[in-house]
Amino acid sequence: MLYSHNLEDEKINLFILFLTKAIQGDQSYAPIVNDVILETHKYVAGEKNLYNIKRDSMNIILLLAGLEADYFKNIADNPEQYDNKIYSKVLNLLALQKSHMAY
């Protein structure tokens, strides 16, 4: 790939793009990001575990859970309540982390 260093890097870049699009008001991207945020919530809340969280976004879920478990634990389990404030928080977490990530 010319642009991305590897698959995981590309996934995170795309997820960041989707968050940005959602924040910019493009609601078509909201279901995709909501899905990851909800899955992270379920994982940190113990409703899901390593064995049944969604595989394709697993590394992002584990990354987010590792960055601020309490935040995701207390987040609503209804994605309809996710808003720009939440998206911005997730975006900031990832942006901060991305500068340290090896992948």
């Binding site: 698959l7 795309l14 989707f18 991207y29 595989r55 394709d56 976004s57």
Partner: peptide, 15 residues
């Protein structure tokens, strides 16, 4: 498998 395991790109293309 670089075209296999990245659902985001397929979602993006669809959108």
């Amino acid at each position: 498998n670089s075209l296999m395991f990245n659902d985001f790109i397929y979602s993006d293309i669809e959108l």
